[in-house]
């Protein structure tokens, strides 16, 4: 860094004390829970900001948005975001979100969880929610490892990465998440790294506004487990690697966007299709058979509450 400061100034020349002015993100966060638990150089904080920016860009009414997350580092996102938020069980964020959405169709429901949570234990729920084109926005923060539990191999770990359960190198072929999502029926699929702050928020905004099942995969650095075990430096080094090796190819065929260990990989917007959502399909079918007798579930109120 060419412009390093030679001598330490006695007092930092700062006209306004930063602490007096609120950080713009503060009104979107549960400030009584900040600082958060994520490790230095983890990309998750960036994803939270990108999600908030995406919500603002999509002009979603905050009271109408719910965040549902599963278990794992990313699972803690719901707890920090000032929305109706639900921290559910491992892998079950998606069916929980399905129930929440169908019971209250006015809600925009966002599932934010990790690669292990959504595609490992939660895989069965993911493929069905996508098949149904359930109106959900899924943000999967992919750090290629089960980080919270200490760095075990994940369904997305590219071989021969070293993890605590593959001490001699991972050897299973990993999922290609966009390919899996598209093949199951997702109508919007995009992938960015956590460095692409604005591309992330634009994609999240599009996903939020697009009816049906959308997936935004975010490649985020995991310093403490993935980077350390594989001697890839810090999260910052991983971010630099992602910057230099992420090749933007919007519209790339999802079958070609698999990720190999420490090799160049493709990011971009891959799928933007039109398919009727579960609710539209259900309502159309019921109306065609029941006509006027069909009474859709409006939701939002407890049917027999005072």
């Amino acid at each position: 860094m060419s412009d390093t400061v030679t001598k330490a100034p006695e007092r930092l020349a700062e006209p306004i004390r930063a602490e007096d002015l609120p950080h713009p993100m503060e009104k979107w966060l549960r400030m009584d829970r900040i600082p958060h638990i994520w490790c230095p150089t983890c990309g998750l904080g960036t994803v939270v900001t990108a999600l908030v920016e995406g919500i603002k860009e999509a002009q979603i009414e905050p009271d109408r948005l719910a965040v549902v997350s599963g278990i794992g580092c990313t699972g803690r996102v719901a707890g920090y975001m000032k929305f109706d938020s639900f921290h559910t069980t491992h892998g079950r964020a998606l069916p929980f979100a399905t129930g929440l959405r169908l019971s209250n169709p006015k809600m925009k429901v966002v599932v934010v969880s990790g690669d292990g949570d959504i595609f490992g234990i939660g895989g069965n729920h993911f493929i069905h929610a996508a098949r149904r084109n359930m109106d959900l926005t899924v943000i999967c923060v992919n750090n290629f490892i089960y980080a919270m539990t200490g760095g075990q191999v994940a369904p997305t770990t590219p071989g021969p990465a070293n993890t605590s359960t593959t001490p001699f190198g991972a050897f299973e072929p990993p999922f290609n998440l966009p390919y899996l999502a598209e093949s199951c029926g997702a109508v919007y699929v995009a992938r960015w790294t956590s460095l692409d702050v604005r591309r992330m928020s634009h994609s999240i905004a599009k996903a939020l506004l697009k009816p049906g099942f959308s997936l935004v995969e975010i490649i985020a650095p995991c310093s403490t487990l993935y980077a350390r075990r594989n001697r890839l430096g810090s999260g910052l080094d991983l971010l630099k690697f992602y910057q230099q090796n992420a090749i933007i190819q919007n519209g790339a065929k999802t079958a070609d966007v698999g990720i190999d260990f420490q090799r160049p990989f493709i990011v971009g917007e891959f799928v933007d299709a039109e398919r009727p959502t579960w609710e539209e399909l259900m309502r159309k079918q019921m109306k065609s058979v029941l006509g006027e007798k069909f009474i859709p579930h409006e939701g939002g109120e407890c049917s027999s509450c005072e």
């Binding site: 069916p95 929440l100 959405r101 729920h125 069905h128 049917s303 027999s304």
Partner: peptide, 20 residues
């Protein structure tokens, strides 16, 4: 749903959405 795990998770979500 796709299995009973999902069914149980879905009804919890539905309750928090405001429906018995």
């Amino acid at each position: 749903m796709e299995d009973e795990l999902a069914s149980m998770a879905a009804i919890i979500g539905a309750c928090w959405g405001g429906t018995k």
